[in-house]
Computed example of a mutant assay.
Amino acid sequence: MSNPLFKKINIFLKVSEETIDSYFNANDPAPIYKRQLSQEFEEYIMNHAPSIKRYSTVTYKLNCVNESDREFIDPLVHAIRRHFSLKKSIKEAEFKKFKRRNWFLLVFSLLVVMFFQGVMPYLLNMEHRIHSAFSNAIDVFSWVILWKPIEKLIFYWNPFLKEISIFDKLINAPIIIVGEKKEKMAVEYAA
Protein backbone atom coordinates (compact mmCIF):
# COMPACT_ATOMS: atom_id res chain seq x y z
CA MET A 1 0.00 0.00 0.00
CA SER A 2 1.50 3.35 -1.00
CA ASN A 3 1.70 6.28 1.34
CA PRO A 4 -0.79 9.02 0.33
CA LEU A 5 1.68 11.69 1.49
CA PHE A 6 3.93 10.91 -1.47
CA LYS A 7 1.22 10.93 -4.15
CA LYS A 8 1.01 14.71 -4.51
CA ILE A 9 4.07 16.89 -3.96
CA ASN A 10 3.53 20.66 -3.87
CA ILE A 11 6.44 23.06 -4.16
CA PHE A 12 5.42 26.49 -2.90
CA LEU A 13 7.14 29.61 -4.24
CA LYS A 14 6.44 33.25 -3.55
CA VAL A 15 6.80 35.37 -6.65
CA SER A 16 7.28 39.06 -6.05
CA GLU A 17 9.70 41.82 -6.93
CA GLU A 18 11.45 41.36 -3.58
CA THR A 19 11.88 37.57 -3.79
CA ILE A 20 12.58 36.98 -7.47
CA ASP A 21 16.29 37.85 -7.23
CA SER A 22 16.80 35.30 -4.46
CA TYR A 23 15.83 32.51 -6.87
CA PHE A 24 18.63 33.30 -9.30
CA ASN A 25 22.41 33.36 -9.20
CA ALA A 26 23.37 36.88 -8.14
CA ASN A 27 26.57 36.80 -10.24
CA ASP A 28 24.84 35.90 -13.50
CA PRO A 29 24.51 38.99 -15.73
CA ALA A 30 22.13 37.33 -18.24
CA PRO A 31 18.52 38.45 -18.66
CA ILE A 32 16.20 37.07 -16.00
CA TYR A 33 14.72 34.31 -18.16
CA LYS A 34 18.22 32.98 -19.01
CA ARG A 35 19.80 33.29 -15.59
CA GLN A 36 21.02 30.34 -13.58
CA LEU A 37 19.10 29.27 -10.51
CA SER A 38 20.79 29.94 -7.18
CA GLN A 39 22.20 27.02 -5.25
CA GLU A 40 19.87 27.69 -2.33
CA PHE A 41 16.81 27.66 -4.61
CA GLU A 42 17.91 24.45 -6.34
CA GLU A 43 18.54 22.91 -2.92
CA TYR A 44 15.04 23.94 -1.79
CA ILE A 45 13.49 22.22 -4.80
CA MET A 46 15.75 19.17 -4.55
CA ASN A 47 14.84 18.73 -0.87
CA HIS A 48 11.49 17.49 -2.20
CA ALA A 49 13.21 14.93 -4.44
CA PRO A 50 13.48 12.11 -1.86
CA SER A 51 9.71 12.18 -1.40
CA ILE A 52 9.02 12.04 -5.17
CA LYS A 53 8.08 8.47 -6.01
CA ARG A 54 7.19 6.75 -9.27
CA TYR A 55 3.49 7.66 -9.18
CA SER A 56 3.84 11.04 -7.46
CA THR A 57 2.59 14.19 -9.10
CA VAL A 58 4.61 17.34 -8.61
CA THR A 59 3.01 20.78 -8.75
CA TYR A 60 4.56 24.23 -8.43
CA LYS A 61 2.27 26.59 -6.55
CA LEU A 62 3.26 30.20 -7.11
CA ASN A 63 1.98 32.79 -4.68
CA CYS A 64 1.50 36.17 -6.34
CA VAL A 65 0.49 38.98 -4.01
CA ASN A 66 0.10 41.74 -6.60
CA GLU A 67 -1.00 41.74 -10.20
CA SER A 68 2.36 43.29 -11.13
CA ASP A 69 4.16 40.20 -9.78
CA ARG A 70 2.73 38.11 -12.62
CA GLU A 71 5.40 39.43 -14.99
CA PHE A 72 7.98 37.37 -13.07
CA ILE A 73 6.12 34.07 -13.49
CA ASP A 74 7.16 33.26 -17.07
CA PRO A 75 10.89 33.95 -16.55
CA LEU A 76 10.90 31.92 -13.33
CA VAL A 77 9.06 28.97 -14.89
CA HIS A 78 11.30 29.09 -17.95
CA ALA A 79 14.45 29.15 -15.79
CA ILE A 80 13.27 26.23 -13.63
CA ARG A 81 12.39 24.08 -16.64
CA ARG A 82 15.60 24.98 -18.48
CA HIS A 83 17.69 24.23 -15.38
CA PHE A 84 16.20 20.79 -14.79
CA SER A 85 16.23 19.96 -18.51
CA LEU A 86 19.97 20.54 -18.46
CA LYS A 87 20.33 18.40 -15.31
CA LYS A 88 18.28 15.65 -16.96
CA SER A 89 20.38 15.67 -20.13
CA ILE A 90 23.58 15.49 -18.05
CA LYS A 91 22.20 12.53 -16.06
CA GLU A 92 21.10 10.79 -19.29
CA ALA A 93 24.63 11.23 -20.71
CA GLU A 94 26.11 9.79 -17.49
CA PHE A 95 23.73 6.82 -17.73
CA LYS A 96 24.66 6.21 -21.36
CA LYS A 97 28.37 6.36 -20.46
CA PHE A 98 27.76 4.01 -17.50
CA LYS A 99 26.03 1.44 -19.74
CA ARG A 100 28.64 1.71 -22.51
CA ARG A 101 31.55 1.35 -20.08
CA ASN A 102 30.05 -1.65 -18.29
CA TRP A 103 29.04 -3.45 -21.50
CA PHE A 104 32.58 -2.92 -22.82
CA LEU A 105 34.01 -4.25 -19.55
CA LEU A 106 31.70 -7.28 -19.69
CA VAL A 107 32.65 -8.09 -23.30
CA PHE A 108 36.35 -7.64 -22.51
CA SER A 109 36.00 -9.85 -19.43
CA LEU A 110 34.24 -12.53 -21.48
CA LEU A 111 37.04 -12.46 -24.05
CA VAL A 112 39.66 -12.84 -21.31
CA VAL A 113 37.70 -15.70 -19.72
CA MET A 114 37.26 -17.42 -23.09
CA PHE A 115 40.99 -17.12 -23.71
CA PHE A 116 41.92 -18.57 -20.33
CA GLN A 117 39.25 -21.29 -20.39
CA GLY A 118 39.76 -22.24 -24.04
CA VAL A 119 43.40 -21.70 -24.94
CA MET A 120 45.37 -22.04 -21.71
CA PRO A 121 44.40 -25.69 -20.99
CA TYR A 122 45.89 -26.71 -24.36
CA LEU A 123 49.18 -25.02 -23.50
CA LEU A 124 49.61 -27.09 -20.35
CA ASN A 125 50.12 -30.82 -20.44
CA MET A 126 47.08 -32.69 -18.99
CA GLU A 127 49.36 -35.22 -17.22
CA HIS A 128 50.93 -32.71 -14.83
CA ARG A 129 49.44 -32.00 -11.43
CA ILE A 130 49.90 -28.28 -12.07
CA HIS A 131 47.19 -28.51 -14.72
CA SER A 132 44.37 -29.11 -12.20
CA ALA A 133 45.62 -26.37 -9.85
CA PHE A 134 45.92 -23.93 -12.72
CA SER A 135 42.49 -24.95 -14.03
CA ASN A 136 40.92 -24.22 -10.64
CA ALA A 137 42.72 -20.88 -10.49
CA ILE A 138 41.35 -20.02 -13.95
CA ASP A 139 37.80 -20.87 -12.78
CA VAL A 140 38.13 -18.59 -9.76
CA PHE A 141 39.68 -15.85 -11.89
CA SER A 142 36.80 -16.16 -14.37
CA TRP A 143 34.21 -15.61 -11.64
CA VAL A 144 36.12 -12.68 -10.20
CA ILE A 145 36.62 -10.89 -13.52
CA LEU A 146 32.98 -11.32 -14.56
CA TRP A 147 31.43 -10.43 -11.19
CA LYS A 148 31.76 -6.62 -11.18
CA PRO A 149 30.43 -5.86 -14.70
CA ILE A 150 27.48 -8.19 -14.23
CA GLU A 151 26.74 -6.75 -10.78
CA LYS A 152 26.84 -3.17 -12.09
CA LEU A 153 24.64 -3.92 -15.09
CA ILE A 154 22.05 -5.66 -12.94
CA PHE A 155 21.94 -3.53 -9.78
CA TYR A 156 23.46 -0.08 -10.34
CA TRP A 157 21.29 1.34 -13.15
CA ASN A 158 18.22 2.11 -11.01
CA PRO A 159 19.58 5.28 -9.30
CA PHE A 160 20.22 6.78 -12.74
CA LEU A 161 16.66 6.11 -13.87
CA LYS A 162 15.24 7.43 -10.60
CA GLU A 163 17.10 10.74 -10.93
CA ILE A 164 16.09 11.07 -14.60
CA SER A 165 12.47 10.44 -13.59
CA ILE A 166 12.65 13.07 -10.82
CA PHE A 167 14.12 15.65 -13.21
CA ASP A 168 11.41 14.81 -15.74
CA LYS A 169 8.70 15.37 -13.10
CA LEU A 170 10.30 18.69 -12.09
CA ILE A 171 10.43 19.81 -15.74
CA ASN A 172 6.85 18.88 -16.59
CA ALA A 173 5.20 19.85 -13.31
CA PRO A 174 2.14 22.06 -13.78
CA ILE A 175 2.17 25.60 -12.42
CA ILE A 176 -0.73 26.81 -10.31
CA ILE A 177 -0.94 30.47 -9.38
CA VAL A 178 -2.39 31.17 -5.97
CA GLY A 179 -3.57 34.69 -5.14
CA GLU A 180 -3.39 36.73 -1.97
CA LYS A 181 -6.61 35.19 -0.63
CA LYS A 182 -5.11 31.70 -1.02
CA GLU A 183 -7.70 30.75 -3.60
CA LYS A 184 -6.63 29.29 -6.89
CA MET A 185 -6.70 31.66 -9.79
CA ALA A 186 -7.81 30.48 -13.19
CA VAL A 187 -4.32 30.55 -14.65
CA GLU A 188 -2.44 27.26 -14.94
CA TYR A 189 0.67 26.76 -16.98
CA ALA A 190 0.90 23.50 -18.86
CA ALA A 191 4.19 21.72 -19.22
Results as ranks from 00 to 15, higher is better:
Lys184Ala: 10
Tyr156His: 09
Val77Met: 14
Ser85Trp: 02
Val113Trp: 00
Lys91Val: 04
Asn125Phe: 05
Phe116Thr: 04
His83Gln: 15
Ala49Gly: 09
Leu124His: 08
Glu92Ser: 12
Lys99Ala: 09
Glu71Gly: 11
Ala173Gly: 09
Asp69Phe: 05
Ala186Ile: 11
Ala79Gly: 13
Ala93Met: 10
Pro75His: 14
Lys7Cys: 05
Leu146Ser: 03
Phe141Ser: 03
Met120His: 02
Asn172Cys: 08
Met1Ile: 08
Ile130Ser: 13
Leu105Ile: 00
Tyr23Cys: 10
Met46Leu: 15
Tyr44Thr: 15
Asn27Glu: 11
Lys53Leu: 11
Ser135Ala: 05
Tyr189Arg: 04
Asn10Glu: 13
Glu17Met: 01
Ile171Asp: 04
Arg82Lys: 15
Gln36His: 07
Val178Cys: 15
Cys64His: 02
Ile11His: 02
Tyr55Trp: 04
Ile80Gly: 12
Asn25Thr: 04
Ile166Met: 09
Ser132Met: 08
Tyr33Trp: 09
Asn66Cys: 09
Leu110Gly: 12
Ile11Trp: 01
Thr19Gln: 13
Pro159Asn: 09
Tyr33Gln: 12
Ala93Val: 05
Ser142Cys: 04
His128Val: 12
Asn66Val: 01
Lys162Arg: 08
Phe84Asp: 08
Val144Thr: 15
Phe134Trp: 05
Lys97Phe: 00
Arg54His: 12
Leu106Met: 10
Val77Gly: 12
Asp28Asn: 08
Ile138Met: 05
Val77Pro: 13
Ala79Val: 05
Phe116Val: 04
Phe84Ser: 09
Ser132Lys: 15
Val113Phe: 00
Val58Gln: 06
Met126Arg: 07
Glu163Cys: 08
Arg35Pro: 07
Met114Ile: 07
Gly118Ser: 08
Asn63His: 12
Val187Asp: 10
Asn172Phe: 02
Pro29Glu: 05
Pro50Ile: 09
Met114Trp: 04
Lys152Trp: 00
Ser135His: 05
Ser56Ile: 14
Ser132Phe: 12
Lys184Pro: 12
Ser2Leu: 13
Leu76Cys: 14
Phe84Thr: 14
Pro75Cys: 08
Ser38Leu: 06
Lys152Tyr: 00
Arg101Glu: 11
Asp69Trp: 02
Leu76Ser: 14
Ser109Trp: 01
Ala190Ile: 10
Lys91Asp: 10
Val178Trp: 02
Ile52Ser: 06
Val15Pro: 05
Glu188Met: 07
Pro121Met: 13
Pro75Asn: 11
Ile20Asp: 05
Glu42Thr: 14
Lys184Glu: 13
Leu106Asn: 06
Leu86Met: 13
His131Gly: 06
Ser135Val: 01
Ile32Tyr: 03
Arg70Ala: 09
Glu151Cys: 01
Arg100Pro: 00
Val119Met: 05
Val58Asn: 13
Phe141Lys: 00
Glu43Tyr: 04
Asp139Gly: 08
Ser56Pro: 09
Arg70Gln: 14
Ile9Pro: 12
Lys162Trp: 06
Val119Trp: 02
His48Ser: 11
Cys64Val: 14
Lys34Ser: 11
Leu153Asn: 02
Lys152Cys: 00
Tyr156Phe: 08
Phe116Ser: 13
Arg70Asp: 11
